[in-house]
Simulated assay, not measured.
Amino acid sequence: MTALTISALGSRSRTLLPGLLVSAMVAAAATFLSEHYGAPVMLFALLLGLAMNFLSADSVCKAGIEFTAREILRLGVALLGIRITFGQIAELGWQPVVMVVVLVTVTILVSIAAARAMGFNFLFGLLTGGATAICGASAALALAAALPAHTQKEKATLFTVLGVSALSTLAMILYPMIVRSLGLPPLQAGIFLGGTIHDVAQVVGAGYSLSKDVGDSATVVKLMRVAMLLPVILCAAMITRARGVEPGDKRPPLLPWFAVGFVLLAAVNSTGFLPSLVVEAGGKLSQWCLVISIAALGMKTQLKALATVGVKPILLMVGETVFLALLVLGMLKVAG
């Protein structure tokens, strides 16, 4: 490595560091608030980021905020793979696996159709449908990273993160009541909670509030939905490549590096060679990366831009959430 290369790397680091540090500070504040007040950390990170959006106009922080919102996000998505093993999926048998594949596929297709019927771009339906069907804010961020650049993409991503975080918190409170009122046995209760609530943390909270058995099955079903992130990202990349992009925009790669990283880490974790401390640390690092990146995304967005979304996108996301819950209940009834 030449002295010129070292100098260039040092200059690049100095350019990115202020924005990266600011994003990390916002993420730390969001984590503190989440731990003390019980609301989703992604929601706090987004709101605090929006409150500090003046920093993205600062030439000192701008480059680092842009880098964090893009590259740290992708690293966080790749690290999600370390939370999954193929053995966890096999333990539940073939029936829940088929149910998860069907509910994710149907929910996304219905969301795209509903978005088009309401006058939105089909990509917005893919983004909100994927977030609802897979894993909430994490899926929204992952899909946004795989989709082509667009003037409205960041606004749509932030709205989706805000929507799924709020709906996931509401579901964590309401869905255990539904489980009790319907008298669902532990396995079916776990499948319902793990198959319908958007974010992993809320699934864990709702499941273990009922019993350990419900919590265990809900968590595994939820991780199966997270595993669907890879094929959905690949499908999104293929669809957007086939449709083409606007002039001047860059085509997304067919196989994004963070998607490859996701499946490789899942495969390595499935071998059982990774110590539990490494798996736990990887999961926490993934969460940190996603929180930091959503804070950066918030700082890049003007609050008044989100205020102009109107009622229709809200109705779309609420409708997707209700549809997913009814679909899972219907599948459980058919399965007996």
Rank of each mutant, 00 (worst) to 15 (best):
A113K: 03
I89T: 09
Q95G: 05
I108H: 10
M172S: 11
T160M: 07
A144G: 14
I89W: 11
K153C: 02
F159W: 13
V106L: 12
T151F: 08
I134G: 02
G125Q: 00
S111P: 00
Q88P: 04
V110Y: 01
L126F: 12
E91N: 10
A145Y: 02
K153N: 06
A133M: 01
L92P: 06
L141V: 07
A114Y: 03
L170V: 15
L143T: 02
T107Y: 00
G163Q: 15
S111T: 05
I134T: 00
P176L: 11
P96Q: 07
L127T: 03
T107V: 01
R116C: 03
V110L: 07
G125R: 01
T107S: 11
L162T: 07
T85K: 12
L143N: 04
L167G: 04
T169F: 15
L174N: 01
T151P: 12
A115N: 05
V104N: 07
A140L: 04
A146T: 13
A142V: 04
L109E: 06
R116A: 05
G163W: 11
A156R: 14
A131H: 06
A171Q: 10
T160F: 02
A144H: 09
P148F: 07
P176C: 07
V106E: 09
E91H: 11
A90T: 10
P96F: 10
A145W: 04
A149H: 12
E91R: 13
A131G: 11
A142C: 04
A156W: 15
V98F: 15
T85G: 03
A171I: 02
V161G: 02
M99S: 09
A90I: 05
M172K: 04
M99A: 07
V101F: 14
V104T: 11
Q152T: 13
L141W: 07
A145T: 00
L174F: 13
T105C: 12
A139V: 09
G136E: 03
G136I: 02
L109H: 00
I112A: 06
P148Y: 09
A133D: 01
A146P: 08
V164E: 00
G130C: 02
A171K: 04
I108A: 01
L92A: 02
S138N: 09
N121P: 01
K155W: 10
W94Y: 12
F122N: 03
A144E: 13
V106T: 10
L174D: 00
T85L: 12
L147Y: 10
I89D: 02
T105V: 12
T105N: 06
L158A: 15
M99F: 02
M177T: 09
M118Q: 05
A149W: 08
M99Y: 00
V102N: 09
